[in-house]
Amino acid sequence: MEAKLMKGNEALAEAAIQAGCDAYFGYPITPQSEVLEYLAVEMPKHNRIVMQAESEVASINMVYGAAGAGFRAMTSSSSPGISLMAEGISYLAGAELPCLLVNVNRAGPGLGTIQPGQGDYFQATKGGGHGDYRMIVLAPASVQEMADHVFLGFDLADKYCNPVMILSDGAIGQMMEKVVFQPYIHNKVDKPWATVGKPASRNRNFITSLHIRPEDMEVQNQKLLDKYNLMRKQEVRYEEFQTEDAEYLFVAYGLSSRICQKAVDLAREKGIKVGLFRPISLFPFPYQRLEVLASQVKLMLSVELNTGQMVEDVQLAVKGKVPVEFYGRLGGMIPTPEEVLLHLEKLMQ
């Protein structure tokens, strides 16, 4: 396969086309506007729908309409825009509609800055909108994964009839790397629930998240819970780097995992046995594997571009068996590998 040099956002957009995405609805926001720009050029060539909506609120609801009609639909945005979409995401999850969402995370809160951040971890994994829902969250750490996760994300969305989010960040979205698009076969899933017009032969379909009788709502909530539990069982994804003999463990995802990987190399040169654990699925979080690693290492250090969010999940996973520490840079600042290693060395003493 031919490798291409592409920007993360563009690789993601190209993958969307190759994944058979029928419709993209978006709204410009830095640092993800390239997705909309790329698709605005490419989608019409494939007779697909691409639309710049008047707001993130509108674009997520257009996704709702398209997904409800049984089409592959996606949108992308960055942190403040995802907050605006939170209502729509909750409705999508409630109505069990498959779709792909992309958050190219920037630092916040509020308008924040346009530099990379990981402050949306809680929002993405614990449900940023109202009500009791979850969505599968994939965290790419390279331009290659920006593309790969699109294929995976669409398939998982269809499999579980649930929104799937790719939680990237400003650096992964903007950086250029080589990417190889693996041939993808879109196995179309039957969507008998889609609202495409009611023929006489079947009952009407309706897409709704409203269950006004508490008895019905509880049944629906239980159904959702069963689905989320199935995800927890089947969709845990992670990557390990030099963990076999590790005494110390970095836990990091996305951009910060790239930095930690380099820090592991530096540490190994110094003779310190450090490994890296990188969750790829942030929901479901790889609790079980981390618990196993907890019996092997002396200390875990969660490195994030926020004030400490994933570290809470790491603490939950290890159940107090080993100390879990946190190191983070804020406001769009990115730590160097040396800086991360220095922090670990301080903790080791």
Partner: peptide, 8 residues
């Protein structure tokens, strides 16, 4: 008695 979607 038609296909419908309930919007936010």
């Amino acid at each position: 008695d038609i296909d419908m979607q309930e919007a936010a």
